[in-house]
């Protein structure tokens, strides 16, 4: 309430402030999103992953202040409901129903103080999952709550 009272006296000033609304105190807030890149990561667009094989999923995350968490989501795209953001388009298989699709959804917290991090996840593609088109989405947050995402279209094959 003290703040309010003070503010009341300054109300005429508020009008002046309108014209020159510089926001100096913004300097201490973090207005930058983290980044996530698959440039030298894995998988790349249209990559074919074999059932039963083990792969290392890699992506590079960075932030101006501090990274907080990341996640990896692999889900099927048998119905062509989505596409990747890598600028390329893969030839998709025919639309089909799912029986036992691979679902990988994991979240990871990062240790404190990192401004860059190389994501390295060793994942085995199970032997019994449906083959076909899949979508692989990475996301990363910073301590402020900004998020960055990237995704790539892949295939699981015999």
């Amino acid at each position: 309430m003290k703040l309010m009272k003070r503010a009341f006296y300054f109300m005429p000033l508020a009008v002046l402030l309108m014209a020159s609304c510089s926001s100096d105190e913004d300097s201490d807030i973090d207005e930058q999103k983290p980044t996530i890149s698959l440039n030298s990561g894995f998988p790349q667009s249209c990559e074919e992953l074999k059932r039963g094989e083990t792969y290392t999923f890699r992506a590079a995350a960075a932030d101006n202040l501090e990274l907080a968490s990341y996640s990896l989501n692999i889900h099927h795209n048998f119905d062509h409901h989505t596409h990747d953001d890598q600028g390329s388009s893969c030839e998709l298989n025919a639309i089909k129903a799912s029986e036992n699709p691979m679902i990988f959804m994991e979240n990871y917290s990062l240790e404190e103080g990192l401004t860059s991090y190389e994501i390295n996840l060793v994942i085995e593609i199970p032997n019994d999952v449906d083959t076909g088109d899949y979508h692989c989405a990475y996301s990363v947050t910073d301590v402020t709550g900004w998020q960055a995402r990237t995704s790539v279209d892949i295939k699981i094959v015999e």
Binding site: A68, S71, L72, E106, N107, S139, T141, T144, G145, Q147
Partner: peptide
């Protein structure tokens, strides 16, 4: 918006 994930969603 927090820094945490639930089933890969923020």
């Amino acid at each position: 918006p927090t820094s945490d994930y639930y089933e890969t969603l923020q």
